[in-house]
Design a protein around this nucleic acid. Structure first.
Lengths: 339, 339
DNA sequence: GTGAAAGCGCTAACAG
DNA sequence: CTGTTAGCGCTTTCAC
């Protein structure tokens, strides 16, 4: 290590009575070395607790064994009531533990585009970018610098780009809509976020085509992700003013919770007068009264898929196809209605 | 950059018509250079979008501009219902944005002690370690390798160690206990986690001394952090079997939520028959019925304090004293009782 | 005030 | 099969 530990490859070489090159080869399993030397060197290295300096190694190999994670919502996490804290926290946790199991470190990069770039940010082996937006500056930067990356959710700008994984948004949307319809909903509104990412765009598209196929007039409303519960509440009032639908699908858990509260304020009972469901489960959804029917995203599977894809890209293996991960729907009180 | 971008200090030097040393000096504001050369070089570097390779720089300076964050609970985040997801997610978000504002990158290190060490992990400039436990292997490793670190919460093993920041646990505990007593509680139980960290230990100590000063017999129960809501529920049943106290302070939000549910199952009404409060706010607490009175931790202030302390240690500035950050108590329905 | 040169710890190509 | 050597991109003396 540059500073910590202090035992370098040279020390090991001296102690083992071989050249530093031999040590490097022995430890990396490269080159041509006698099995005897190899084990001997390994023993000595172990004994000395030698750990190759990732910096020096990275400088040589131009691969540091670390990837970046761009979570935009991270900036929001400082707020008291951030959007979707639940699912993102789980995603961060899953991804970093799984990456570590593969020998990769994870660096958190809230904003890759700032100048000067965060140290190491441009030297990382690759990136996982969450939900690229239309005309995404982070994606543009990675693209320009030729840094491998994969995205959580498809890139709305790049239909041909296949290095992404995601829950199957459209399928989730249809699943919930079918559920609502089965419970007797006749007029279902969709409340999406304002950010132009695949999550919002694809759900809206699925909703519109589902509506069209049923001959229903679509009602789509947008609430800013950052407005959280309060945003959901005011949207509830707006919908009530307009003559409330008898079911609302909120893509965001917080919006759903706010919607529930807002409808209650207007004397609209859930699920009796109107049903509510959300496409991303959260504690909000689980602990509201009534609890809100929600889709539970499989962040562990998505993390694994993203790491697979990223490793393939880093190794230069050809990209195959995006990975759609599963999601389970949990019907709860907010859609429990005897019709 | 080693790989990405490709424009090196040599390219800038050539373009600016100076030596590479001059470029380094100009950009770092070191050495003796004419102001003219300095600006000229800077302009060229900007124009070429030159970014110094953090790896190479780190190799030389043995300081990479990145710190590690050891969040043990990260391993738990993969579970569907992890403990304290809320407060940790906010902490991670706060810390990483604030670190970036200071020009530091943050690397997530779930387990620093595993062999081989995660790449870069031992080459980082310093570490923030959350809640060290008694005989903490991570702290031991950092100590042994001489890597600067600060901790969130004091180190139970090192009374003399002052490089830590935290909410004032004992003060929080007393605050809540006073509140419960003021609302008429006569027999208050404390439910803590099992991990031997300052959070649990100090709260228990504060609780015991508070009880002693009032001549009350302390009731302390332990529930594993990872058991979450279910753990709180079974503890509720156990307490009910033993003859329930008329108030319970759960250090963890999830335990509190489980406690609420468990007591309800036994026909014990909250807040009428028993009150519940928790020392760490979460969505659980806010959205239970009734909502649970809770202490909201100031993760932003704590993050800032930790980064200050860490930077001081990295720069070799002397350590002064630990920083205690504020916390607000939110009385809610679970302790709203007219006595 | 400026440039040449050494070297951080490592890997990979080469000669022995 | 092994050891020597040349750098990766940068910072930092040290001559000029």
């Amino acid at each position: 290590m540059a500073r910590a530990g202090g035992v370098t490859i040279r020390d090991v070489a001296k102690r083992a009575g071989v050249s530093i090159a031999a040590v490097s080869m022995a430890l990396n399993g490269t080159g041509t070395l006698s099995a005897a030397t190899r084990t001997r060197v390994r023993e000595v290295a172990d004994e000395m607790e030698y750990q190759a300096d990732a910096l020096a190694r990275g400088l040589r190999r131009s691969s540091v064994g670390a990837i970046g994670l761009v979570i935009r919502s991270l900036d929001l996490l400082g707020d008291y009531a951030p959007a979707g804290v639940d699912v993102f926290a789980r995603f961060i946790g899953d991804l970093s533990s799984q990456a570590m199991a593969r020998g990769l470190s994870v660096m958190l990069v809230p904003d890759l585009t700032r100048r000067p770039a965060p140290p190491l940010a441009l030297g990382l082996d690759g990136y996982v970018v969450d939900l690229p937006t239309v005309d995404d500056p982070v994606v543009r930067l990675l693209e320009r610098r030729g840094i491998p990356y994969v995205t959580l959710g498809r890139d709305p700008d790049r239909p041909g780009f296949t290095d992404w994984a995601s829950e199957d948004g459209p399928a989730i949307t249809r699943r919930v809509l079918d559920h609502l319809a089965a419970r007797g909903a006749r007029c279902i509104a969709l409340v999406r976020g304002t950010v132009p990412n695949a999550w919002n765009l694809d759900a809206e598209a699925a909703y519109r085509s589902w509506s069209a196929s049923r001959g229903a007039a679509p009602i789509v409303r947008e609430v800013a992700e950052g407005d959280g519960e309060a945003g959901g509440r005011s949207m509830a009032h707006r919908l009530a003013d307009e003559g409330a639908p008898d079911a609302v699908l909120c893509l965001t858990g917080r919006h759903a919770a706010g919607m529930l509260a807002g409808l209650a304020e207007r004397g609209i009972r859930v699920p009796h007068d109107a049903m509510i469901a959300t496409a991303s489960d959260s504690e909000h959804a689980r602990h509201s009264r009534p609890a809100i029917s929600a889709v539970e995203l499989d962040t562990a599977a998505t993390s694994a898929a993203l790491l697979d894809l990223l490793q393939a890209r880093i190794d230069g293996r050809p990209s195959v196809a995006p990975v759609l991960t599963g999601a389970r729907f949990h019907p709860r009180g907010s859609t429990r209605r005897r019709d």
